[in-house]
Structures are given as structure tokens and as C-alpha cells.
Amino acid sequence: DAEELIELVERALKEGREIILLGVRITSEEAGKWFIEWIRRFL
């Protein structure tokens, strides 16, 4: 579910982890915020 995915992304970014989803590397909080917004819009 989308909320679970958002929580995972937020937690990983807070822990300083690198996330790779759909071939996109997300390493900064700014990118994470963009990704979370995208999830909310399309899922």
C-alpha cells in the first residue's frame, strides 16, 4: 500500500540510507519528498 511505501522511504532517508526504486536513486531528503509526492499523486 502507498502509505507503507511512503513510511519506508521517509524512514530510510532519515537514517541516511540510499534508496533505489524503479531504477531511480534517491539519496537526499529533497528527492525523497519529490518521490513521496509522486506516490501520493499516482497511487
Rank of each mutant, 00 (worst) to 15 (best):
A2F: 15
I6Y: 05
A12K: 02
D1L: 15
E15H: 08
G16Q: 06
R41M: 13
F35K: 03
I19G: 02
F35R: 02
V9I: 11
E7A: 14
I36V: 05
I6V: 07
A31F: 12
I6R: 05
I39E: 00
I36N: 01
S28T: 10
F35Y: 04
G32C: 15
E18Y: 11
G32V: 12
A12R: 03
G16D: 02
E30G: 09
I19L: 08
R40T: 07
I26C: 15
A31Q: 14
W38N: 01
I39Q: 00
R41E: 05
D1E: 09
R11N: 07
K14S: 09
K14L: 11
F35D: 00
L5S: 01
L21Q: 01
W34E: 06
R25F: 11
G23K: 08
I39N: 00
E15Q: 07
E29N: 11
E7D: 10
L13G: 01
E37Y: 13
L43A: 05
L13H: 02
E15W: 13
I36F: 06
L21K: 02
L13S: 02
V24H: 06
T27C: 15
A31M: 14
A2G: 06
L8F: 11
T27N: 14
E4V: 13
L5R: 00
R11H: 07
R41H: 09
R11W: 10
K33I: 08
L22T: 02
W34H: 08
L8V: 04
E3K: 11
I19N: 01
E7Q: 11
R17F: 09
E18P: 09
I26L: 05
A12C: 15
E15C: 15
A2Q: 08
E7H: 12
R11Y: 03
E37M: 12
G23T: 09
A31S: 09
E37N: 09
S28L: 10
R11M: 06
I19Q: 01
T27W: 13
E29V: 11
F42M: 11
E18G: 08
I39G: 00
R11P: 02
A31L: 14
A31V: 15
R25K: 08
E15L: 08
I19W: 07
E7F: 11
V9M: 06
G16L: 15
E3G: 10
I26H: 02
I39V: 09
E3N: 12
R40D: 01
V24P: 02
L5Q: 01
E37L: 13
F35A: 02
I6K: 04
W38Y: 05
G32E: 04
E29H: 10
L5W: 10
V24N: 02
K14H: 07
D1A: 13
G32K: 10
I20N: 02
W38P: 00
E3T: 12
L13C: 15
E7W: 12
E10Y: 12
I6P: 02
V9C: 14
S28C: 12
A12T: 04
I26Q: 04
S28N: 11
F42Y: 10
L13V: 08
G32Y: 12
E30H: 08
I36T: 03
K14E: 08
T27E: 06
A31W: 14
E10A: 09
W34C: 11
K14V: 07
E10L: 15
L13M: 10
L13Q: 02
V24R: 02
G23P: 04
K14Q: 08
L43T: 04
W38Q: 02
D1T: 14
I19D: 00
W34Q: 09
K14F: 05
I26G: 01
R25Y: 09
I39R: 00
D1K: 14
A2T: 09
I26D: 02
I39P: 00
T27Q: 07
E10N: 12
W34T: 07
E29G: 09
L22N: 02
S28G: 12
A2S: 06
E15F: 09
W38T: 01
W34F: 06
W34K: 12
A2L: 15
K33G: 05
W34G: 03
E18H: 12
A12E: 03
I26K: 04
I20T: 11
F42N: 04
L21R: 03
R17V: 11
E3Y: 14
L13F: 06
E10Q: 12
I26Y: 05
D1H: 14
E29M: 13
L5H: 01
D1V: 14
G16R: 06
K14A: 10
K33N: 07
I6W: 14
R41V: 10
R17E: 04
E37F: 10
A12N: 03
L22Y: 04
K33F: 07
